[in-house]
Design a protein around this nucleic acid. Structure first.
Length: 593
RNA sequence: GGACGUAUAGUGUAGUUGGAUAUCACUUUGGCCUUCUAAGCCGAAAACCCGGGUUCGAAUCCUGGUACGUCCGCCA
């Protein structure tokens, strides 16, 4: 609880100094109490024992006695060598009511900071529908974008479109050379397109891609095909505009289909940057020329060029190739040009990448450093796999995002219908769409990115306990209370601006809990943003919803038609905070469910 | 073989970078709807991969194992 810390530290400073503690080390020892009941902040006094020649128990008691009175401080006690400090609930209430806790908004309408941040995420090859394996990047990236905005930063969300190279070339080749009969024949053993997605280009065209992949392995003329694809790749890498245009025609509808899927999850981008731009505008060529002047530049037998990153401490594979023997550039080379371009437009750069990109990111980072450029921050995540193992389009072992979202909505519909038989179909459908998509997002975002993740339907669609619907439900409850007040003829807005409402002298447990959770909220947000760990904030929001439920249990707002103004005000603040926080995580804050 | 990451109740997870009686949820189990939405609330049971080391104190740091994941292309 930082707001308590800033008040407590000077007090501790003077107390400790007067007792003879010299080092400043204690500041990092002042931690959040392990036992929530014990306090908000705790100071273990063991290290002082040697310095002062007293037992930790004595020291803790001495400090507790010596701390001056302060309106911020509540209970202070010394237990077994620990000094436990609680914030005064009345002080917390005053802070919360006077809006010392920033509510913010996740859409970045009013950036509070000057930071210009560019977050690149998703950037999936546009060759087929979004599957759950790819989803972690998109959900993590979009959540990071939203949390930065909630935090007050200026953010640009960017998708780097891989519009050249082999994958798109295969797709373009297939669309030009294969009839739909060829495709169906080749894929006769695979599942056909889900009728639901017929006409959606990502689902349609991926079949051409899959068929081409099979044909490249098996067909008698596979060598000519390989040559033709190679020619296209080569041409694209040299900036051939006709070829690049044919690639664009091939992938754009697929990309549009993928973006439609993401849209349903509330994920969108500010800018799309095409890889080919750095070839056609000459950046890549200039960059490769510049590499030649570097000390660590090297040339292989066939004329291919590399940088010897081993000389800069890289272990394992030390040669980083940036140019082929035929003179064309490589993906990573273009990525470096892309990064230099990105750095001209922001002061913080974040990339969201799968753990398979760790080496490549290291190479790009080291090369940027060699060039005197800044190195981007990277959020790596571990892959999502299925209980049957790795996801693979080839083996048909995939769960498409479109199917998952359909299923999520269907299951949510069943729940809503059972709970509220009186709701209209339109209402049921909008509630279950919100609950379904939010549940899917939250399920993925609440776990630490570097933890392996196994996709299980029953977990993705769990609508209770620590889920998005649990949070949504608390928020809907808060909304429902406000609605009820209005219905009773109470002007909620007018009551919110009243300044004469005070908390009860003896606050119920649930009220104190809620106040403490709200006061910790900004601390968690900034940590989640700065450390690039959105799951911390997800867990905090869960805590906020839980605390609100305790408050709801202990504190009536309308009792026998009588309004408790303070309770209403606190409820409304919690409601706004839940709302913006939900938006920060991409959970849809519906007002009734 | 080398590099990097992960290992916490039956299951899935958190752990603020070295602090107390290790978090939350599911499952199991006992209770709470005549009171602002029971998708809720209150209670019980259950865990730090194995071996050394550093420390007043280790899930956390060091070290040696084991298991799993990812990478080690003139692919993207």
């Amino acid at each position: 609880m930082d707001m308590l810390r800033v008040i407590l530290e000077p007090h501790l400073e003077s107390v400790l100094q007067s007792t003879g503690v010299k080092s400043q080390h204690w500041r990092s020892m002042l931690v959040r109490s392990r036992e929530h009941d014990q306090g908000d902040l705790s100071l273990p006094c063991f290290p002082f024992a040697k310095e002062l020649g007293k037992s930790p128990v004595e020291i803790a008691e001495m400090i507790a006695q010596a701390l001056p009175d302060d309106p911020a401080l509540g209970e202070v006690n010394a237990v077994a060598g620990y000094l436990n400090i609680k914030a005064n609930p009345q002080w917390l209430a005053e802070k919360v009511m006077n809006h010392h806790v920033r509510i913010g908004d996740a859409f970045g309408k009013k950036p509070a900071n000057k930071e210009q941040i560019l977050i690149e995420h998703t950037s999936a090859n546009p060759n087929g529908p979004f599957h759950v394996g790819r989803a972690r990047n998109a959900i993590l990236g979009d959540t990071l974008v939203r949390l930065h905005r909630l935090h007050g930063n200026n953010v640009r969300a960017e998708y780097y479109v891989d519009d050249m190279g082999k994958q798109v070339a295969v797709l373009a080749w297939a669309l030009e050379n294969l009839s739909s009969q060829d495709v169906e024949q080749t894929l006769e053993n695979a599942d056909s397109v889900n009728p639901k997605w017929q006409g959606k280009a990502d689902h349609e065209r991926v079949r051409w891609y899959q068929a081409a992949q099979a044909i490249r392995q098996d067909r008698s003329d596979k060598e000519e095909i390989e040559q033709e694809i190679g020619r296209m790749v080569h041409a694209s890498e040299h900036g051939d505009e006709d070829v690049l245009q044919s690639f664009q025609d091939a992938f754009q509808p697929v990309l549009d289909g993928m973006l439609a899927t993401l849209e349903r999850l509330g994920i969108s981008f500010d800018t799309f940057t095409k890889e080919s731009m750095f070839v056609t505008n000459g950046d890549v060529g200039k960059l490769m020329e510049h590499f030649k002047t570097l000390e660590i530049h090297g040339v292989a037998d066939n004329g291919a060029e590399f940088l010897d990153l081993g000389a800069r401490g890289l272990k394992g594979k030390t040669e980083f190739f940036f140019r082929r023997g035929d003179g064309s550039s490589l993906y990573a080379t273009r990525d470096i040009a892309y990064h230099m371009w990105k750095w001209k437009q922001c002061n913080q750069l974040i990339n969201v990448l799968g753990e398979d990109h760790k080496l490549q990111a290291k190479q790009v980072g080291m090369t940027l450093a060699e060039l005197g450029e800044k190195v981007p921050d990277v959020l790596f995540y571990s892959f999502i796999k299925l209980p049957e193992g790795k996801m693979s389009t080839r083996k048909g072992n995939v769960v498409y995002m479109d199917d998952l979202l359909e299923e999520a909505q269907a299951q949510a519909t069943a729940v809503v219908r059972e709970l509220h038989p009186d709701y209209s179909e339109a209402m049921i459908s909008s509630i279950s769409e919100a609950a379904g998509t939010s549940a899917v997002r939250f399920n993925i975002i609440k776990v630490s990115p570097d933890k392996g993740f196994t996709f299980r339907w029953e977990e993705a669609l769990a609508f209770e306990g620590g889920s998005a619907p649990f949070i949504m439900y608390s928020h809907a409850r808060a909304c429902s209370i406000a609605r009820k007040c209005e219905k009773e003829g109470i002007d909620v807005q007018a009551n919110l601006s009243r300044t004469d409402a005070v908390p009860p002298a003896e606050m119920p447990k649930g009220m104190i809990e809620l106040l403490r959770t709200i006061c910790v909220h900004p601390d968690v947000l900034s940590k989640a943003v700065n450390d690039r760990r959105p799951h911390l904030f997800a867990n905090q929001l869960l805590q906020l919803a839980t605390s609100f439920n305790s408050f709801y249990r202990d504190c009536m707002i309308l009792k026998d038609g009588e309004l408790d103004v303070f309770n209403l005000q606190l409820s409304e603040i919690a409601r706004s905070l839940m709302r913006t926080s939900m938006e920060g995580l991409g959970i849809v804050p519906i007002e009734q469910m």
